[in-house]
Design a protein around this nucleic acid. Structure first.
Lengths: 335, 335
DNA sequence: AACGATTTCGCAAACGTTTGCGCTTGAAAA
DNA sequence: TTTTCAAGCGCAAACGTTTGCGAAATCGTT
């Protein structure tokens, strides 16, 4: 840190007290216009800037919010970050970012770090592997404002920002059914994740609604490009009996499309594919991916909006809100 | 911020002085084993955690580093962030992230904010539009440790982390030439950006090396997907006279491929295309994109490594380093 | 028994702010 | 001339730490 000029220095060179400088700089009425101008001009001249650290300590408020996110290199999550940064920038808050890399231990460390830094609130999307929420619970009990987004924790009452994942899964699956699919493979996320369960439940719901029998073997835990690759042989065996695929995210949907094409299946004629996310890849793959749109940027903004709303009404009387974004199906060529 | 327990509270309930608590907690030899244990146990019990803000103020060191980045929703940049976060996490630093959104004004604000927050150092990649570096110069003169990465500033002496963009451009272009191309279109970034100029110069270099005449009309400022779209008609006119394209980044290369395919050109038979970046899209587009690999994660790590090295050797005697990553050509199907 | 040397701890200043309170002024009111 | 009062300013505590220095207590040594 630098040899920055402080309020003390100004006081000394101008021959006034520290408190006078402080008050003058914030237009306190106790200070005469002449000394106020003197001080303000001088401060400007030497480019005085208050020490935010000292301010935070004094005010017991850091104007900083902490973010715990599973992955940064991820279109949805990076969009979320972008939305968060945009709004908090406007509102005078800064973001400290921590990446859990889908690792529960690192997630816990991150939480502790952020608390240690006395952030005013925390935004978090859980890692895939997190099953123990005790640290979050403790933070919650200590009155730490938290907003969960996307990958939320059901057992903790907080503000939340989510998609209607169940409806998304239902929508995607129903679309496939309406297009004539009867044997739909679901590439699912881990059931540890609520969003994974919800999207799967949406899939099941759609089948039920249309009186299509559920086949357990058509639900496969497979939520990354790599996993598609390792499960390749098993997938090959499944292909002859399916006419549709609903993948829990775009990248596995796309990996699936690539496998299908390699095996000579025509999309969408032989097998139809729907993804989830609507990232930039969706329009690059051929055929272009029909998928559920997920508004990361907006969800990011909404998360900090909720957080700030709570920070600004410390009365704590507002009951917890859950903001749910409706899914929309982007119809393209893959289904 | 919360009603967290402080060192003072511990002192009071245990009937010792504040300084004793402080020393006990950090195993200062002056404190007897018995009181040390007493204090440490109690601290653990009530889950005491030091106030980082107070520490930073006292130590004049925040263990925080600031990041100014043009865009977060961008594969290369998010990879950079990820690498930065990983290493700084390990080294006990936190990252405050600011997005300039390619806006010079916002970039300046971000810089000021970070300085106000007394970050220990700053990592920055310039916005596309930045032509005035005075604020950075001032920060530099005040002794603020800075590392520029990717989009660096030539006129300021700092540590730098870059790719050999010229060599990358040369490599890409030469590859096209060796494949038989004679009329290569270059979709270029703004010449304001050094990386834009360098990649273009690499293109020119390769042409010269192979005695191919340079045609100014084959160098087009066009570095986004959107710009490809707006320049569509102009591009159509150009197509009959070209047999190769070197695009300054993957997304414009891909947009170009899509246009070419729509117009009935076969890739790579009729026109070959090379991109720059090697993001995930490169393997999704068809034909898969031949492109220059850009190691964002590694460049991010290297940037904080350089920064920390400087922070840990405040002697300031080390001369500024420029770490340059060699480009490699990922050969796929588009060329 | 007296002394010096340790051991063990507390005081207080400092980091850079804000802010309640009290102290000077000078002028207006009595 | 004295009293009153507001205007204008400074003192000092506080936010939560660390740390140099001094002081008290304990101990061993003659």
């Amino acid at each position: 840190m630098q040899n920055k000029v402080t309020i003390k220095d100004i006081a000394k060179t101008l021959g006034v007290s520290i408190s006078t400088v402080s008050r003058a700089l914030k237009d306190h009425p106790d200070i005469s216009e002449s000394t106020r101008n003197l001080i303000k001009n001088f401060a400007q001249e030497i480019n005085y800037r208050p020490n935010v650290l000292a301010l935070s300590l004094r005010r017991q408020k850091s104007n900083t919010i902490g973010l715990i996110i599973p992955e940064i290199v991820h279109h949805f999550f990076s969009s979320v970050i972008s939305g968060m940064e945009d709004l908090s920038y406007r509102e005078g808050y800064n973001i400290i970012i921590c990446q859990s890399t889908e690792n529960q231990f690192r997630e816990a460390t991150a939480l502790q770090t952020l608390i240690d830094h006395r952030v005013d609130g925390i935004l978090v999307s859980l890692s895939k592997s997190t099953q123990n929420f005790s640290q979050f619970k403790k933070a919650q009990e200590e009155g730490f404002p938290m907003v969960f987004f996307d990958r939320i924790c059901e057992s903790i009452e907080t503000d939340r920002v989510v998609m209607d994942d169940l409806e998304g899964g239902r929508l995607a699956t129903e679309y496939l059914i309406n297009k004539g699919c009867q044997n739909i493979l679901h590439l699912a996320a881990s059931p540890i994740l609520l969003i994974g369960r919800n999207r799967r439940d949406g899939y099941l719901q759609a089948l039920k609604d249309h009186n299509i029998p559920i086949k357990e073997e058509l639900i496969l835990k497979c939520d990354t490009q790599e996993e598609v690759s390792t499960l390749r042989n098993h997938l090959y065996e499944l292909l002859p009996q399916i006419d549709g695929v609903f993948a829990v995210n775009d990248s596995t949907a796309i990996a699936m499309i690539q496998i299908l094409k390699k095996k000579g299946y025509r999309i969408p004629q032989d097998i139809k594919v729907v993804g989830f996310g609507d990232g930039p890849n969706a329009t690059i793959v051929e055929p272009a991916l029909t998928t559920i749109e997920q508004k990361g940027y907006d969800m990011g903004r909404e998360s900090v909006r909720l957080l700030l709303q709570r920070l600004n009404n410390p009365s704590a009387s507002i009951s917890y809100q859950t903001r749910v974004f409706p899914p929309t199906l982007k119809i393209r060529e893959s289904a």
